[in-house]
Amino acid sequence: MSVSGGRVSVGHPAHHRTRSRLNPQAYLATTGRILRQLAADHRSLAMILVVPSAVIALMYFMFADLPHRPGTPAPFDNACLIMLGVFPLIMMFLITSITMQRERVSGTLERILTTPLRRFDLLAAYGTAFSVAAAAQATLACVISFWLLGLHTEGSPALVFLIAIVNAVLGVGLGLLCSAFARTEFQAVQFMPVVIAPQLLLCGIVVPRDALPDWLQWISNAMPASYALEALRMVGAHPDLTSTAARDIAVVVAFAVVAMGLAAATLRRRTP
């Protein structure tokens, strides 16, 4: 701040927030506020909790009477495993990117960033809140799939639950990252065909990865959804955690961490 006769440095907290440590009170307050907003938004809550489970139930009735060879997984088991990996990624990407853009446009994000809460701490609060929502989504979807619809996997259901949560956290990270480049909520939604659709096409759902041309296999190997789906298939086919599944889970976690870090680095106060 400039005054008559010279310049005086004012130690405003906002000037030093980049060097402060995590403020537990501000972090918990921000996390609680986001969770309360999600709980009050009934449409978002329905998208997170009800829609995935309803679609999985619909798939159960679609595949219930389809014949399959003895000794091979039932068609519903294959389809349900794919949905348990795909839904958390898609739904949390949409909810996170739209909510973050809404915070920016409304000015809430700008007001928060005038406090001592650092950008990375703010992203940690958003990541925590949406990860809690993701855990609730994965829990409900897995309970309905395994205990009500009879989903069978050779591996532990706990591993399927873990991979579903990791995929949801990845969706949160990608949603936070993409929201930094959108100016409206509609633009945030438009990132889905750019970020999510190629992963779904190349992860092995439509065409097996080893049947793709070499150059598409290279692109597929650089996409986290490929490793998430491979991990789920390993759990579905093997009773124990294989080294391939462990590696795939670690790769998806690494992608989620990198996405969170990039989101913190590109966070802007509001859309110009």
Rank of each mutant, 00 (worst) to 15 (best):
V206M: 15
A256S: 12
Q25E: 13
A250G: 08
L149T: 09
A228D: 06
L174A: 13
S97K: 01
V105A: 11
L94F: 10
I82T: 14
P224N: 10
I249G: 05
A259H: 05
Q190W: 11
A228H: 03
R270Q: 13
L117D: 05
L202G: 02
M260S: 04
V3I: 15
V166F: 01
G175S: 08
S20F: 05
L89W: 07
V194E: 07
P24S: 08
T128K: 03
Q137R: 03
I82W: 03
R69P: 01
E185T: 05
T115A: 10
P157K: 00
T96F: 03
A136L: 15
C80S: 13
Q190M: 15
I95Y: 06
G6M: 06
T271D: 14
V132P: 01
T30P: 00
R233G: 04
H238E: 10
A228T: 07
R118I: 03
V10R: 07
H152V: 06
D248M: 05
F120N: 10
L148I: 09
P67S: 08
V8F: 12
L117R: 02
A124N: 05
S106L: 07
M62Q: 10
R19D: 15
L201A: 10
A39Y: 14
V235G: 02
I205M: 12
G5D: 13
S179W: 10
Q101A: 12
P208T: 03
A254D: 02
L216M: 13
T30D: 14
T184A: 09
G6N: 09
T266Q: 09
R270E: 14
P24V: 05
V235H: 03
A180H: 13
H68I: 03
L49N: 05
A264D: 12
L159N: 01
G236K: 03
G11L: 15
I98P: 02
T108F: 15
A79R: 02
H12V: 04
I249Y: 05
P213F: 02
M100A: 09
M1K: 10
I219Q: 02
L267T: 02
G32V: 07
L45S: 07
Y227H: 14
P52Q: 06
L159W: 11
A141P: 01
A237N: 11
Q190L: 14
H238Y: 12
A231I: 06
C142S: 12
L232M: 09
L162E: 09
V166H: 02
A64K: 13
A182K: 02
T30I: 12
E185A: 09
L229V: 08
T108W: 10
I165W: 06
E103I: 00
A259W: 04
Y126G: 06
Y126E: 15
L232P: 00
R183I: 06
V194I: 15
F186Q: 14
F146T: 04
F186H: 09
V8Y: 12
I82Q: 12
P75G: 00
L49M: 04
F93T: 07
T271H: 08
V51L: 15
S106P: 01
V189A: 15
L109S: 12
R104E: 14
S131F: 02
L229D: 01
D41R: 01
A164P: 07
A141S: 14
V143N: 11
T153S: 09
A141G: 00
A237Q: 10
A164K: 08
A79W: 01
L232T: 00
H15M: 14
G175T: 09
Y126S: 11
A168K: 06
D210A: 11
T115D: 10
D210P: 00
P157V: 05
A197I: 14
M92Q: 11
V189T: 13
A133Y: 03
L66Q: 13
